[in-house]
Simulated scan of single mutants.
Amino acid sequence: MAEDVVDGRGIQPRHLIVTVCALFADQLDGWFPVASLVRLLADLGVDEPAVRSSISRLKRRGLLEARRVRGAAGYELSDGARRLLHDGHQRAVHQSRPAVADGWLLAVFSVPEAERGKRHTLRSQLTRLGFGTAAPGVWIAPAHLHQETAAVLDRHGLRGYVELFRADHLSFVELPAKVAEWWDLDGLQQSYADFLARYRPVWRRWSRRRAIPEREAFADIVRMHTEWRLLPYADPGLPRELLPKNWNGSLAAELFASIDRRLTVPARRHVNLARLG
């Protein structure tokens, strides 16, 4: 099938297309001709039928919008997709963590049974924001996520179902023990470890090379950004003292930034060549 996974990491063509548009569309005034997308995705091992099928799916989901420029067919990211990617980028590049004294954000919600779809959307959005579950209908996150949470709830028409509270932890149970219940920190630690295992060899390879082949740089940076995009959402940005020892997230963020700095310029040159055809 055209939408089959393209490699052993589980990266699907539509995710790669979104990454290409997010990273490089500014070189084309926010717009990618279909022909350029086909050429660039070929460098990632995706054939033309899979590209066109994935574009159609992204268009149906409202993430891509069709636009013609000088008679050429192409696509650009929708406003909604840009907002989502901007939020993810902010989390990826701003890895500062709050202190325990900064407090917590509680989201208390109730959705009528007749509006189960809204309940699913609400839970999905809170999960994407990095909330953990403190009790049924009570979700918790570091207080610094307040503005982003309020904006997401407004955007999805969910504000009327949720009350947001600023809180301090005053329980008799040690906070690190409760945090381990509210979030799957072991799973997140492993996800970061997997990222390190995949991309440390990539960094060693590129750090030793003086000349950087542009096509290879493009392929590596697109795959890396695609895999990384989900991790900052899964990570709620907890205070360091509440994290496991030897937290892999800090190491993974440093590795991501090093590879990104090394490969961005040659990757952009390759995109310019693909645009010229």
Rank of each mutant, 00 (worst) to 15 (best):
G132N: 15
V69L: 09
R116M: 02
S53F: 06
S96H: 15
R262S: 09
L231P: 04
A167E: 12
K118V: 14
V271H: 07
L185N: 09
R209C: 03
D43I: 02
D194T: 09
P136E: 14
R240T: 08
R229N: 13
A219T: 10
L263V: 12
S56M: 07
G160P: 11
K178Q: 15
G277W: 02
Y199L: 04
R83K: 15
W203I: 03
L273N: 06
S78Y: 06
A274L: 08
V46L: 08
R91C: 05
L230A: 15
H120K: 14
T264G: 01
L37Y: 03
A219G: 11
V46Q: 05
L196G: 02
P136Q: 13
W104C: 02
A150N: 05
Q27D: 09
V173N: 14
P213Q: 03
P213N: 04
W206L: 15
A135Y: 10
R116S: 06
S96R: 12
V271Q: 10
S56I: 09
G117C: 05
S53G: 07
G103Y: 00
D43R: 15
R123I: 09
G30Y: 03
P266M: 08
K178F: 05
R166E: 12
W206Y: 15
V20Q: 11
D260E: 12
T19C: 10
Q95F: 06
L273G: 06
D184F: 10
W247E: 10
P13L: 07
G117T: 09
F195H: 05
L58V: 05
H146V: 13
G30N: 07
S258D: 11
F131I: 08
T121A: 11
H89S: 10
R60N: 10
L263S: 04
A101M: 13
P112W: 11
K59N: 11
P236R: 02
W139A: 04
H144P: 05
L238S: 01
R209Q: 07
T121D: 12
V152W: 02
G187K: 01
G277A: 05
P98M: 02
E113L: 12
R128I: 08
D79E: 14
F165I: 05
A234R: 03
T121Q: 11
I17G: 03
D29R: 15
R215N: 06
